[in-house]
Simulated assay, not measured.
Amino acid sequence: MTDTRQLAVDLFNGVWTLLEKPDRTAEDDDRMLHMAHASRFH
């Protein structure tokens, strides 16, 4: 797997981790949004 594709996968998985976090903060939401955009870009 290329480095770029692995980065996209890691970001996508990070988004799901934050989605499932029961006590997610507004900062987590912001991070999740940026991670989703970055995952789609890569």
Rank of each mutant, 00 (worst) to 15 (best):
M32A: 07
M35G: 05
D28V: 15
M32R: 07
T25R: 14
L19V: 07
V15N: 01
D3V: 06
A38T: 02
R31V: 05
D29Y: 12
D29W: 11
H34C: 04
L7I: 09
S39N: 01
P22L: 02
N13S: 11
N13E: 07
L7Q: 02
N13H: 14
W16N: 08
L18Y: 10
D23A: 12
P22F: 03
R5W: 09
T25S: 15
P22A: 07
D3M: 07
N13R: 13
S39W: 00
V15M: 02
L33M: 13
D29C: 15
A8T: 09
M1L: 14
M35N: 05
A8H: 08
Q6S: 03
M35V: 02
V15H: 04
L19E: 04
A26R: 14
D29Q: 15
T25L: 12
R5F: 10
H34Y: 04
R40P: 01
L19A: 08
H42G: 04
T25A: 11
D30V: 14
Q6D: 01
V9F: 05
A38Y: 05
G14K: 11
L19D: 03
N13C: 11
G14D: 11
R24P: 00
F12S: 04
L19H: 11
R5P: 01
R5H: 06
M35C: 10
R40S: 05
T4C: 05
D29P: 13
R40W: 02
A36N: 08
T25C: 11
Q6F: 05
M1E: 12
